[in-house]
Simulated assay, not measured.
Amino acid sequence: MSILIDPPSWPAHGTVFSHLVSDATLDELHDFARSHQIPERAFDRDHYDVPLERYPELVAGGAREVSASELVRALIVSGLRIPAKYRPEKLDRVLTRRWAQTLPTEPQLGQELLGLWAQGHRRYHDRVHLLSVLEALDWLAKDQSDAQERMLLQLAAWFHDAVYEGTSEDETRSAILARERLTGVLNPAAVAKVSELVLLTAGHSPGANDKLGRILCDADLEVLARPQPAYQRYAQAIYQEYAHFPRPALATGRIKVLGSLLEKKNIYSTAQGITRWEAAARSNVGAEVKTLHTWLGEEF
């Protein structure tokens, strides 16, 4: 076990708090928290906040005492650290600035979309995912597109999961929303392209000559290539979004989605994506598929 705790020195609610983390997996952290009856509401993306009075008990229970700086370093090395810009108190400001750079004439539309991305039922398809896609687009499109194309890609990212209810109609409804909100703001060809790009994120199979589609789909799938702990956090968030399904049905559906990716010659469509992400993504996805088969009592 590799549970770490820093000294109780973070003031809030009339006491001081420690941070409780794992430097290996979130599953390990959650198991430790449950065994000590730490409530789920105390979890904040990569750590639990625990009050001063719980500190001796948690250390006695196996949490290793480290300094605050050691704890942060261990989280970073493990890949479990959530950067500050991805935390709720920062996200709105970061994303509002990005929207202003993309479509500065429509601040109200930006706020409407931000409100959709912040809906409480989202666990993975949320503002963190939106910012991650936008940042991946920055890298993928930097030398491959002009300013107009980058604007279309950024808008497609903002709209691609704007409607999210966990159904097969989400991309279609998101594309319809894009057409409704952008008509009269952009020219008809631009509106049509944004809508077309949004629809592509349903299956991630852009045409060989669809440069923008290939860039957007790769940006949307960047998460598959993250370090294993971060990939596990992504998978857990997906499971939470589909927790209303019985576990076998969830596993079967997820295996189908992931299997379709593994069957492709390449998961990614751009040269940059293949070079940078393909091997890691195949390893992560393959490992998840094996795990999901165990949910069904199958060997794989």
Rank of each mutant, 00 (worst) to 15 (best):
S2I: 06
S18G: 13
H19F: 06
T25N: 12
T25M: 10
D27T: 11
D31M: 11
F32I: 06
S35L: 06
S35G: 13
Q37E: 15
Q37A: 14
I38W: 10
F43T: 12
D44Q: 13
R54I: 06
Y55C: 05
P56Y: 09
E57Y: 13
G61E: 04
G62A: 09
V77D: 14
A84V: 11
E89S: 15
R93M: 09
Q101C: 12
T102H: 05
A118P: 01
R123N: 08
Y124I: 10
V128G: 08
L130C: 09
S132R: 12
E135H: 05
A136E: 08
W139D: 12
Q144P: 03
S145E: 04
S145R: 03
A147D: 15
Q148H: 13
E149Y: 01
Q154E: 10
L155Y: 07
D161G: 00
T167Y: 06
S168W: 07
D170F: 02
N187D: 15
K193C: 14
A202R: 07
G213M: 02
D220N: 13
Y231M: 00
A235K: 03
I238D: 06
E241N: 00
A243L: 03
P246S: 14
P246G: 01
R247W: 00
L250K: 05
K256C: 07
K264T: 00
I274A: 01
W277G: 04
S283K: 09
T291G: 08
T294E: 03
